[in-house]
Design a protein around this nucleic acid. Structure first.
Lengths: 181, 181
DNA sequence: TAGATACGTCAACATGGCTGACATAAAATT
DNA sequence: AATTTTATGTCAGCCATGTTGACGTATCTA
């Protein structure tokens, strides 16, 4: 084991002028690092399971949103994920070929491919969401209703509002009333 | 614009038994998705700036922890980032070559390379942290002290406790007392 | 002195982003 | 009816960043 003892630095910026901090010199190092570690472990839960299926995080994201928003079009999925159709194409093709997702031509517009999770796909998503839910539930254990509500309110407020895609719109709307349960 | 109307699915798992949910059938889709979008936009702030410097997220992570924990060794950095030394080597070499980081032999153990951010490096980190702090400060606007504390408590509780690296230990300790300010 | 450790590096490979180009079917417009 | 636009798929190749395995050197430890 290394036995060096490093110290936390709370020194301010040295050279340039940080563009527009709310409270100058008061950078939220605490929350910044907590977000990093919390998200790292949060997605880590799913990573192990995905590996066993031969999938990656990209597959998880696709499966998640297709499951949650049945009938999602490819274009809408591209909006949510903010990747190119070539990148999406690769993982989507695998999920289709292996029977985790099926597609159907749109009712009004037959060019569209509406995406649906199969039972197999839903089982995978539920397994992954179960792990992540466990972590969230543990983290919220002992929280009062108003504390838990504050957490959801914080996360909502962290999200960009300009140019929300359709999925995001629904999420933000829905959460207004249903954050507590 | 596509005018399809997809609906949110609140159906449960179909095939297999999700391993160990706390409250069966009660998956926290809301928090799961909020975390996804919040983190996406949170790291997105930095991405634009980094691009202008010819750097990526990997460089940001290295710069951040070197700045925050001056004298960090390579081994400790590997622990925090959970990547291989080969992956780290690539980005670290660039940051050293371009003068964002300097290294010094360890005092007690001269095999170690203690890492330090230069003024140039600190300026970059401060710029990026400024953007992310802006977002956090906006998100916490109007929060009571106890609400803000609940957010930090939630994030801390989301982090794995088993086998914490040295950086994480310090963060969790420090936050006990200093989460409010 | 022998072995373990901290670090650096070479080579090869995988994943998942990206751009650019092009094809097809179906809708929309003229 | 002819044309153009849109939704999707796909080929080819590049880049960033992760991986494994092997090996070398300096330095610390037993």
């Amino acid at each position: 084991m290394a036995d060096i003892k490093f110290v936390r630095a709370d020194i301010g910026p040295t050279g340039s002028e940080p563009s527009s901090e709310a409270a100058p010199g008061h950078l939220r190092w605490d929350i910044i690092e907590l977000l990093f570690f919390a998200y790292r472990d949060f997605v880590g839960d799913a990573d192990h399971v995905l590996e066993a299926f031969g999938f990656g995080r990209a597959h998880h994201r696709v499966m998640h949103f297709v499951h949650r928003y049945p009938g999602l079009t490819v274009a809408d999925l591209l909006d949510v994920l903010r990747i190119t159709k070539q990148s999406l194409g690769r993982v989507l093709k695998q999920l289709l070929d292996e029977g985790y997702i099926v597609q159907r031509a749109g009712d009004h517009d037959r060019r569209q491919r509406l995406l649906f999770a199969t039972a197999k796909g839903e089982a995978l998503v539920a397994k992954l969401a179960g792990l992540q839910t466990d972590r969230i539930t543990r983290a919220l254990r002992g929280f009062s209703a108003s504390d838990a509500e504050a957490v959801a309110r914080f996360l909502r407020a962290m999200i960009d509002r300009d140019d929300p895609d359709k999925v995001l719109e629904q999420l933000l709307d829905h959460n207004h009333s249903a954050a507590k349960d």
